[in-house]
Nucleic acid binder design. Structure first.
Lengths: 137, 137
DNA sequence: CAGGATCCCCCAAGATACTG
DNA sequence: CAGTATCTTGGGGGATCCTG
């Protein structure tokens, strides 16, 4: 029962297992959706707007999260359709580590930026080219 | 100075910032490298083998992590070159949330698998074709 | 409003080969 | 051993149009 999704990394340690889970719930959008949902249930377009995600990716991400039992979908058969998404108990349990990660992110963004600037300045040895090596167009 | 790397998602909330950090240290390999390094310093090939990562990705990942001030690189100019990698204090601070995430992953992998199986079984209604929609043998 | 279907681009990431 | 350089591909992910 090998998972075809996980590259095939047969690590001897637990990294393999972690890697599997990470490849499922560890991607950017999933993390952000969980994070956002940790504040409470929310509608589709609400999530879409707040996350700046395309409806396609949101749709896909939500379906995967629902499939993995992390998010629950509740649709109201009203005339203008309304669908709410909320964390399941399992999703709630992910909330803690995700929140911690989010907090760390907010707390250390500037540290990272500083480190980057420092690193870039250091490796800037004699590169007198006529431009940007990181096309910021 | 906008970061060209971050899609351009102009979210009104803090999600934008978190998203930035997540896109830096939140990817699969970075997370795994940090996780692995949280046990102590390690050599290049040691990491490579244990994570089942290609040398290219490991090299790239490590350089980014070093650039972001999360990992410190120490090279010994010996005849068979030896390079050790270890977490910086900043990296150590990431250790806690990463560890928490890793623990969650290990604790809930089977829950996720169960949820998946259940979901797939449920949405398997009236699909009497001979084809596999998900090539999982 | 929620989201499926399509088209398409581009880069993340693996494989391979070479070097100091 | 510890990388770097190069080539190639899969699929992540955006844009757009359409429907219930």
């Amino acid at each position: 029962m090998g998972d075809p999704k996980v590259t095939k990394a047969r690590s001897p340690c637990e990294c393999g297992r972690i890697s599997e889970v990470l490849s499922r719930v560890g991607d950017r959008w999933s993390t952000l959706v969980i994070y956002r949902l940790s504040d409470g249930r929310m509608r589709f377009n609400e999530l879409k707007r707040q996350l700046g995600i395309s409806q396609r990716m949101l749709s896909l991400t939500l379906r995967e999260l629902e499939r993995d039992g992390l998010v629950r979908r509740e649709a109201f058969p009203t005339v203008p359709p309304r669908v709410d998404y909320e964390l399941t108990p399992l999703g709630e349990s992910l909330r803690v580590p995700i929140r911690a990660l989010g907090k760390w992110a907010l707390d250390n963004l500037d540290h990272i930026d500083a480190a980057r600037a420092s690193y870039d300045a250091g490796s800037d040895r004699r590169d007198g080219g006529a431009g940007e090596e990181r096309g910021a167009a």
